[in-house]
Nucleic acid binder design. Structure first.
Length: 924
RNA sequence: GCCAAGGUGGUGGAAUAGGUAGACACGCAAGACUUAAAAUCUUGUGGACGAUUUUGUCCGUGCGGGUUCGAGUCCCGCCCUUGGUACCA
C-alpha cells in the first residue's frame, strides 16, 4: 500500500475497534472520570446529513483526547426514538412504528460507526425499548407519589403529606399545589371518603391531572403545542385547530422554578442559553394586594399581582382576565349580556389573533366597583384579554400612568390617568422607569421608588390586605399526548380517580394495534386497544407521554444501562455523577435542557442521584448551512422561468434539489424526472440555459440541500470528513458547507502519508536524535493542538496540524521520535490514519492506549527575535536581536539603524517603548 | 419592541492578556512535468499608486467618535445580519 488507501485503512480499524471492544468503558476508581455526551438523535427515515455529525465529531475528539490523558471516559450514544414521524408512517402504511424505528436506528448506527466515532455501543439505549421505558414509567410514578414542600424546598413522599393531613389537616402545609385547594382540618380529613381524599391529594402531587385549554386538532386527533399551530391550522397537514378544555397530566415544574433559576449560576453554559432559561422561568418580585368590592348583596375580594405596589395611589381601575373565576359573577345585571359576549369572544380568539392584535384594545365593563384600600374611592372593574388568566392572580390593578398596556387601555376607554412619580409627563405615554420620587401618594410622598415599594409592602402586611409575592412566568408542563407511539402511563382509573400501577407490573408495554388512529369518538389511539385495562378490569390511561419524557433522564441510564433493579445503580452514579461536557443544538434551550434539570433535581430530592445539575458544561454546535437552489414557477402553470427573466411574470419560488444544479444551471432532463408532477414541465430559458436562484440556508431535507455523509466518506474517507467538518470554522458558529474546500484537507492527509511512504514503499525512518528544527516544529504543534482541544477551537487545531506537517515536509523529516509524536496529536482527529501509521511505526498496541505527548518548553524557545520597529505605531523596519538583548542595547541599535533615519531625522524623540520579544515603538 | 451572538480579502476563516491584520485552506494567476489533459510540485495573490531588479508610499477589520505610544481587540453612539422571545402586570 504505497498510496493513501483510506477505504482499506478505515475498514480495517473500525473492525479492529469493534472486535477489541476498544471503547468499552468501565467504572475505574483508579482513574479520574470524564463523561462526555452528545444529545441523542431522533432516528428519522432520511438518515444523517453532514450537518448532524458536527457535534459528534467534536465530542469524539475530546473523548479521545481525554482518554489519552488518563481519564476513564464515558462516551455513549443512543436514540430518542418515540415520535410523530414513525407514528404518521404507521397510520399511512399500517406498519408498526417499532419496525420503522428499529430499521432507522440500524441505519443511523451504521452511519455513525463509519465515521469512526468512539462510542461504547454496548451502552446504547433506545427510549422505545420497554427495558428503558420501564424506568421512565417508574420515575413518573415517583412524581405521582411525591409533593413539594416549599418550607424544606424539596420533594417529599406523598405518604408524609398524608400523615400531616391526618394530624393537622392542610391549613399549615406550605406546598407547591393547585391554586384552589380547599382548606380542611384533620378531623375533616378523617371523615372524607376515599375518592375525596384522592382528589385532595391530586392537588398536591408533582404529577397531577389538570384542566387545560389546549390546541385540539380533530383531524390529527391530537393536541398541538403553540408552535405547531400556524394561522389556526396545524403545521403538519394544515388541518383546523380549535381550543378545547381537556384533563391532562401535568408535571409541577413550577415548584422548582426558583431552584432552576439559582442552579444556572453554577453551571458552565452559554450565556445566551442561561438567559433564555431565565426569561422562560420569568421570576418577578412584587406584591399581592386584595381589593374588596362594593356590591351590596355580596362582598367579593379580588387579589391582584403587581411588581409596582408603590404606584397603588395611581390605580384608576381593576382588570380581570376573561378566565378569572369572578369574571362571570361579579358584574351587574345590566352588564351581564355584554360581559358574557366578551368572555365568549375572548375564549374563541386564537393565540394567533391575540398576537396579531397587540395594538387593538378590547374590554368589557362589569358595572361593579372595588374600593381603593387607602383612598376608599370606588374603582371600576373591567374584563380584558390583555390580562392573562394563567399568570399572577389573573387580575391586575390598572395604573395607566406607569404601565404602557394600562395606558393604552385607559386611553381607549377614557379612564383617568394619575401620575404618582414627580416630574413625569404622561400625556404621550406611560412612564415605566423604576426611578423617581413619589407624589400624590399620601404616606409614600417624597420616597424614592425602591423605598416606597418596601414601605407599601410593610403597610399592606400590617393591614393584612396584601403581602410580598414572587410570580413566575413558568407554567406547569403538560405531560399527556393523545398519541400511540410514546410511553404508556402506568395509571388506571377507579371511579374516575387515577391510581398508580404497582411497580412490579412495570413496564406497562404498548399493546399491539390494528390501527394507530384516534377512536371514532376522538379518544387517543389506545382507546382502540382491546383489553387496555388492569387485571382487575379497571381502565388504563389512554394518553401516552410526550417526547421529552425519555430524554429527561437518559444521561443517567448510560451510566448503568443493563441494571434490572434500578434506573441507575449507586456505584455507577457515584462514580460518573453528572455529564462533564454536553454537546447539542441550541434549539433545546427551554425544552429538553430545562426538563432534564427539573427531573435531576427531583431525583436528587428523593436521594436517587447525587447531583443537582445534570450537565456541568454545555456547548451548542452551530448549524451547517448549504447553498440551496430555487426555480421560479409561473403561478398556476407547470412552466418555469429562468432567474433573470422572472420579473416579467407572476411567479412563486420553489426549492429544487441541489444535485440537479451545477454552477446555478439546471439540468432540465433530470429536473423533469425528479418528481412525477414535473414530467411535462416547460421552461423559459436565458441564453439557452435555465439559471437558478440560490441562497445559503440551513441544511435540511425540506430545502433539498443536504449532503449525505455516506457519499463524502466514499469519496474521501471518514478521516477527511472529520477533519474538514472541524476545519470549516468555530464549532459554535453557523457555517456553510462547501465541497470545494474538502480537497485541501484531503491533500493534508496525503501529505501526512507522504512523510511515511514514498512512491515505492515505506520510508526508512531514522532513530537519531532529532534536529533542533524538527523538535521545535513538533513541540510547537503539541502545545497549540492541546490548547486548541482544551478550548474547543478545533478549526485552529487542524490548521496547526497542517502547519506542522508542511514544516516537517519542508525539513524532509523522517525521524522516528518526531513522527511518533505527530501521529499521537493527529489521533483524536483522524483516528483511522493514526492507527495505521502507528502500526507502521512498529507498535502493536492501539494508538488509543498511548498517552498524549508532553510538550517541552525548552524546544520551542527562540534564540533570536525579529522585532518590528514602529514609528508612531507604524512599522517601518525589522531588526533581529538575540532573545536576551538588554533593552538599552536594543534602544541604542534601533536609533542607529539606517532605514529609520528618514523617519527620525528632525524629530524629537519623546519616548521609546520596548515590549520584550514583541515589538518596539518610537514616539516622535 | 426586548434579549443574545455576530459583521475581517474573491470564499471559509486566523489573530489565545491592547503589540507585525489576513495564519491555515479554498479559489485564482504564472511556471515545471506532459504530445495534451488530470493529478502533483514551485511561485505569487487585501486594495490603490509607484517600481517592475531590490526597495517604497498611502488606504484598509460594518459606520461615526473616543481612550492609548499602539485598537480587529477597550469605551460611547449608530447601521446591518442571524438566532431566541412576544401583552408575564
Amino acid at each position: 500500500m504505497n498510496h493513501y488507501d483510506f477505504k482499506a485503512i478505515e475498514q480495517k480499524w473500525q473492525q479492529y475497534w469493534e472486535e477489541k471492544r476498544t471503547f468499552s468503558t468501565t467504572v475505574d476508581p483508579q482513574k479520574p472520570k470524564y463523561y462526555i455526551l452528545d444529545m441523542f438523535p431522533y432516528p428519522s427515515g432520511e438518515g444523517l446529513h453532514v450537518g448532524h455529525p458536527l457535534g459528534y465529531i467534536a465530542s469524539d475528539i475530546v473523548a479521545r483526547y481525554k482518554r489519552s490523558k488518563g481519564y476513564s471516559v464515558l462516551h455513549p450514544m443512543g436514540f430518542d426514538a418515540f415520535g410523530l414521524p414513525a407514528e404518521q408512517f404507521a397510520i399511512q402504511t399500517g406498519q408498526h412504528p417499532a419496525i420503522t424505528t428499529a430499521k432507522n436506528i440500524q441505519r443511523y448506527k451504521q452511519q455513525l460507526q463509519q465515521l469512526g466515532l468512539s462510542y461504547d455501543w454496548d451502552r446504547r439505549i433506545s427510549t422505545t425499548d420497554p427495558n428503558y421505558y420501564k424506568w421512565t414509567q417508574w420515575i413518573f410514578l415517583q412524581l405521582f407519589e411525591s409533593w413539594y414542600d416549599t418550607n424544606l424546598q424539596k420533594a417529599r413522599p406523598i405518604k408524609a403529606l398524608i400523615t400531616i393531613f391526618e394530624q393537622h389537616g392542610n391549613q399549615q402545609v406550605q406546598a407547591s399545589c393547585d391554586k384552589d385547594v380547599p382548606l380542611f382540618t384533620a378531623q375533616a380529613w378523617q371523615q372524607m371518603d376515599e375518592s375525596t381524599r384522592q382528589q385532595r391529594l391530586l392537588g398536591y402531587r408533582l404529577a397531577f391531572l389538570e384542566d387545560t385549554t389546549v390546541n385540539w386538532c380533530p383531524e390529527l386527533g391530537t393536541v398541538l403545542a403553540n408552535e405547531e399551530v400556524k394561522d389556526g391550522l396545524s403545521e403538519r397537514g394544515g388541518y383546523p385547530v380549535i381550543r378545547k378544555q381537556m384533563k391532562q397530566w401535568s408535571l409541577r415544574i413550577t415548584a422548582y422554578a426558583n431552584r432552576l433559576l439559582d442552579g444556572l449560576d453554577r453551571i458552565k453554559w452559554p450565556l445566551s442559553t442561561k438567559e433564555m432559561q431565565r426569561n422562560w422561568i420569568g421570576k418577578s418580585v412584587g406584591a399581592e394586594v386584595v381589593f374588596k368590592t362594593t356590591t351590596k348583596d355580596q362582598a367579593y375580594t379580588i387579589s391582584i399581582f403587581t411588581t409596582r405596589p408603590d404606584t397603588i395611589f395611581g390605580v384608576t381601575y381593576l382588570v380581570l382576565s376573561p378566565e378569572h373565576a369572578l369574571a362571570k359573577t361579579i358584574g351587574t345585571n345590566a352588564q351581564q349580556t355584554s360581559i358574557e359576549a366578551y368572555i365568549t369572544q375572548a375564549a374563541n380568539r386564537s393565540d394567533r389573533d391575540r398576537l396579531a392584535d397587540v395594538t387593538h384594545v378590547t374590554g368589557a365593563f362589569t358595572g361593579a366597583y372595588a374600593i381603593h384600600p387607602f383612598t376608599k374611592k370606588p374603582l371600576p372593574i373591567w374584563i380584558a384579554d390583555y390580562v392573562l388568566g394563567g399568570y399572577g392572580t389573573g387580575a391586575v390593578m390598572g395604573v395607566p400612568a406607569h404601565d404602557s398596556r394600562d395606558y393604552a387601555f385607559a386611553k381607549h376607554f377614557n379612564l383617568p390617568i394619575v401620575s404618582v412619580i414627580a416630574g413625569t409627563n404622561t400625556t404621550q405615554g406611560a412612564y415605566e422607569e423604576k426611578e423617581g420620587v413619589l407624589i400624590n401618594s399620601d404616606f409614600l410622598d417624597g420616597l424614592p421608588v425602591q423605598e416606597a415599594i418596601q414601605q407599601i409592602i410593610q403597610k399592606l402586611e400590617e393591614l393584612e390586605i396584601g403581602k410580598q409575592k414572587t410570580s413566575y412566568r413558568l407554567r406547569n408542563a403538560i405531560f399527556s399526548r393523545q398519541r400511540y407511539w410514546g410511553e404508556p402511563f402506568p395509571i388506571y382509573y377507579k371511579n374516575g380517580i387515577p391510581y398508580p400501577l404497582p411497580v412490579e407490573e412495570l413496564p406497562l408495554e404498548l399493546p399491539a394495534m390494528a390501527t394507530y388512529k384516534p377512536t371514532s369518538t376522538g379518544e387517543p389511539p389506545l382507546g382502540n386497544a382491546p383489553n387496555w385495562e388492569t387485571k382487575a378490569g379497571y381502565p388504563l390511561e389512554l394518553s401516552t407521554m410526550p417526547g421529552w419524557a425519555g430524554s429527561s433522564w437518559y444521561f443517567f441510564r448510560y451510566m448503568d444501562p443493563h441494571n434490572h433493579s434500578n434506573f441507575v445503580g449507586k456505584t455507577a452514579q457515584s462514580y460518573w455523577k453528572a455529564v462533564d461536557l454536553y454537546l447539542g443544538g441550541a434549539e433545546h434551550a427551554t425544552g429538553h435542557l430545562l426538563y432534564a434539570r427539573f427531573w435531576t433535581k427531583f431525583l436528587y430530592d428523593l436521594g436517587y442521584v447525587r447531583v443537582e445539575e445534570p450537565f456541568e458544561e454545555l456547548i451548542h454546535q452551530g448549524m451547517i448551512q448549504n447553498k440551496s437552489s430555487f426555480v421560479y414557477r409561473i403561478k398556476g402553470t407547470n412552466q418555469f422561468v429562468s432567474h433573470n427573466l422572472r420579473h416579467a411574470y407572476d411567479t412563486i419560488s420553489m426549492h429544487v434539489d441541489i444535485h440537479l444544479v451545477k454552477n446555478d444551471v439546471l439540468d432540465l432532463e433530470r429536473f423533469k424526472n425528479w418528481r412525477p408532477d414535473l414530467h411535462d414541465a416547460s421552461f423559459i430559458l436565458e441564453n439557452g440555459q435555465y439559471i437558478c436562484d440560490s441562497e445559503i440556508e440551513k441544511m435540511s431535507k425540506s430545502k433539498y440541500n443536504t449532503i449525505n455523509p455516506d457519499t463524502v466518506v466514499a469519496q474521501y474517507g471518514a478521516d477527511t470528513l472529520r477533519l474538514y467538518t472541524m476545519f470549516l470554522g468555530p464549532l459554535e458558529q453557523a457555517k456553510p458547507w462547501d465541497m470545494h474546500g474538502i480537497e485541501g484537507v484531503f491533500r493534508f492527509l496525503v501529505k501526512v502519508w507522504r512523510l511515511f511512504y514514498s512512491e515505492t514503499g515505506p520510508k526508512a525512518l531514522t532513530n537519531e536524535t532529532p534536529s533542533k528544527e524538527a523538535l521545535k516544529v513538533i513541540h510547537k504543534a503539541i502545545k497549540k493542538v492541546e490548547e486548541d482541544i482544551k478550548r474547543y477551537t478545533f478549526n485552529t487545531a487542524v490548521s496547526n496540524l497542517m502547519i506542522c506537517v508542511n514544516e516537517l515536509t519542508a525539513l524532509k523529516c523522517s525521524n522516528q521520535t518526531i513522527l511518533k509524536n505527530l501521529v499521537l496529536i493527529l489521533a483524536p482527529f483522524a483516528p483511522h490514519l493514526a492507527e495505521e501509521l502507528w502500526q507502521l511505526l512498529g507498535y502493536t498496541h492501539g494508538v488509543i492506549a498511548e498517552p498524549f505527548p508532553q510538550y517541552e518548553e525548552a524546544y520551542v524557545q527562540e534564540e533570536v527575535y525579529e522585532y518590528p520597529i514602529a514609528i508612531n505605531g507604524k512599522v517601518r523596519a525589522k531588526i533581529t536581536f538575540d532573545a536576551h538583548t538588554p533593552q538599552l542595547e536594543i534602544e541604542k541599535r534601533v536609533l542607529a539603524h539606517e532605514a529609520l533615519q528618514k523617519w527620525i531625522q528632525g524629530q524629537s524623540i519623546k519616548k521609546i517603548i520596548i515590549v520584550p520579544n514583541k515589538m518596539v515603538n518610537i514616539v516622535v
